[in-house]
Simulated scan of single mutants.
Amino acid sequence: MSGFDIRQDTLSYVAVGDSFTEGLDDPYPDSGTTARGHYRGWADRLAHHLTDHVSEVRYANLAVRGKLIRQIVADQVPQAVELRPDLVSICAGGNDIIRPGTDPDTVARLFADAVRRLRATGATVLIYTGVDTGFQPVMRRLRGKIATYNMHVRGIADTYECPVVDLWNMDVLRDHRAWSWDRLHLSAEGHRRLALRTCEVLGVPVQDDWNAPWPEEEPKPWRSARQEDLYWAREFLVPWIGRRLTGRSSGDGLGPKRPELERLR
């Protein structure tokens, strides 16, 4: 396993991926908006946790929403290699896996190439598995496909000696409160817990517990739950299908929110 040592004076960290790493739907509390550039997310939170232990942390987030694995490998990986950071996180392939007809074996080969190139720089490369979607009525049909991809991801991690954050076995993510209204992106609390879990994997001391039980919640009436399902289908699922049919992406025309390594204040 590639070692990661928090005991250093300076540290550079680059995050690579799609909307999951960009930080949707976790707006900065003082932004007053969820406009582009105001999302935080687990990677930003992780970078700030690192500043509690390292005098100087330089951080870049190259992730862009909607990107497929080929786009991430072609665009973000060369940028990350050029920046030559100490730590790289890569969570990629999810947008491919949820599309009909995609082959997890093919996606995994592209992912392996990305990891190989990142590890060649000497960086610690932190890898994320896919989430177990069995608790979601619509997404549960993808469970087998995600599991297949996860087996590849774990094999790639073993080959290139990479630490792994296993989202599949994070039971706290099987609660609806860990997810935003679109049921695809983490909520602010979901991002907070994932950042804490990532710190645990890296051996970065934190005070809070990512696995703390959720507060008790009253059961939701059947009618209310169905109304939420209809709202989700109208506001998210239908537009998503429309973008797939027309070849559009939510990330078209957008660049990364933190394209350069910048010191965190």
Rank of each mutant, 00 (worst) to 15 (best):
P78H: 10
A114C: 03
F4W: 03
R243F: 11
L87K: 03
P239C: 06
H176K: 15
R99T: 14
R234P: 04
G41H: 08
W210L: 00
Q227N: 12
S55Y: 02
N95W: 07
G255N: 09
P219M: 08
A80S: 11
A195D: 00
H38W: 11
E216S: 15
D75C: 07
R116M: 10
R119E: 06
S12T: 15
R141T: 14
Y128W: 11
A60D: 06
P100I: 10
I98P: 05
R141L: 13
V81G: 02
I98W: 12
S55P: 07
T159R: 15
E216C: 08
R70T: 13
V14C: 04
H176Y: 13
P27D: 03
A225F: 12
N211K: 10
D86M: 07
C199M: 00
T129R: 04
A80E: 04
T129S: 12
Y28C: 09
Q79E: 15
V81K: 08
R40G: 11
R143K: 10
T159C: 04
R99C: 08
E200M: 11
H49D: 00
A225S: 13
G253D: 06
V54E: 01
G101W: 07
S187C: 02
I156N: 00
V77S: 06
A15S: 12
R119F: 08
R197H: 13
L196H: 01
A147D: 14
L173S: 06
Y231D: 11
L173M: 14
V88N: 03
M170F: 11
D75M: 03
D105I: 05
R192T: 11
Q76D: 08
C199P: 00
L62Q: 01
D132T: 03
S19K: 01
I6Y: 02
E235V: 10
T198L: 05
Q79K: 15
S250K: 14
D96W: 08
L261W: 03
V131D: 07
G134A: 08
G93W: 07
V131Y: 09
R177N: 02
V238G: 04
D252L: 10
W42H: 14
R243N: 13
S2Q: 14
G253E: 06
G203Q: 00
E22G: 03
A212Q: 11
L68G: 02
